[in-house]
């Protein structure tokens, strides 16, 4: 059967992808951020999963207002890298894991999560920057990916509790898949940031620190944070953090924090990153 032993969370700021693609990671602005990825890249080289279920959001790339699925699982065999308006990132296409994706769809729907299934959607920085964070610049990505898109753009996104419960449904789906696979769940987006309006540029280090601690020790407390609190205290786009709760819900109640990294600023955003392993 398939197994799940670890989860990873990270912000997915597009400028991180650009810095990597343009070979600028040694510049003063970028060095402290990328230094925090060195541990992560060693860690994943030693326990590279076969498949990553990558929880992300599309930024008006594959989905526009004609189609806004709250939860969409991508069952395609391959995902093209989208041109988001500044040219396609020079990174490899992403290979899917359609057998697992279709299995998760069926299991999750029977478990109360009415996922929308989509095929080979083009993927944007929300999905590709996390791969860059963990794998740097390979010829081909060393994992297959099941993209799981969450609407966090048209308010309201699904609640933190719903996302946390989806993680639990994902765990049951993964562990009922009859193939010998190592699977990780990654949650992406956040941390504090606001990209719009006169309040753009908002950062809240205290909120972020509490959230990082809560991911380890009190995920149920985090899952109860109302949307209003994310927006008011950490910025409109901080609400992306509900996607971290999908990852956390998929892990054991008790986890071991093996890596934490936090850096401000990355463009308009506070960058957060966690690696958690099941403790039991």
């Amino acid at each position: 059967m398939a197994r799940l032993a670890a989860g990873v969370a990270m912000s997915h700021v597009p400028a991180v992808g650009a810095a990597s693609d343009q070979g600028r990671t040694g510049e003063d602005y970028w060095r402290p951020l990328f230094a925090g990825f060195e541990f992560s890249r060693q860690w994943i080289a030693e326990r590279c999963p076969d498949v990553v279920v990558l929880v992300y959001n599309d930024h008006a790339t594959a989905f526009d207002l004609n189609l806004v699925p709250t939860f969409a699982i991508a069952c395609g065999e391959e995902f093209e890298i989208a041109d988001e308006g500044w040219g396609r990132r020079p990174v490899p296409n992403v290979r899917g894991a359609p057998d697992l994706a279709w299995h998760i769809r069926q299991s999750a729907i029977e478990d109360g999560f009415d996922l929308t299934s989509v095929g080979g959607v083009p993927v944007d920085h929300g999905l590709t920057v996390p791969l860059t964070v963990m794998f740097d610049r390979p010829e081909a990505w060393p994992v297959r990916v099941v993209p799981l898109a969450v609407n966090v753009i048209v308010y309201p996104p699904p609640s933190g509790q719903r996302c946390y419960a989806l993680g639990k449904a994902l765990r049951r789906a993964i562990e009922s898949f009859d193939e010998d696979l190592d699977v990780q769940v990654w949650g992406t987006g956040g941390m504090s940031h606001q990209l719009q309006g006169p309040r753009a540029g908002l950062i809240n280090r205290d909120f972020d620190a509490r959230f990082l601690d809560g991911m380890v020790h009190d995920p149920e407390g985090l899952a109860r944070i109302p949307h209003l609190e994310y927006i008011r205290d950490a910025g409109t786009e901080a609400i992306e953090l509900v996607m971290w709760l999908v990852m956390r819900g998929a892990l054991d109640q008790r986890v071991r924090e093996v890596h934490r990294h936090y850096h401000v600023p990355v463009s308009n955003t506070a960058f957060g990153h966690l690696i958690l392993e099941n403790a039991s």
Binding site: S192, G201, L202, F207, V264, P265
Partner: peptide, 24 residues
């Protein structure tokens, strides 16, 4: 684009972010 919405110059906005961003 974000800087324009705050009414700040790009340089002032970037400096604000480098000093830790706008506080709550």
């Amino acid at each position: 684009g974000a800087a324009a919405m705050t009414g700040m110059t790009r340089e002032a906005y970037r400096a604000m972010m480098l000093s830790g961003g706008r506080s709550t």
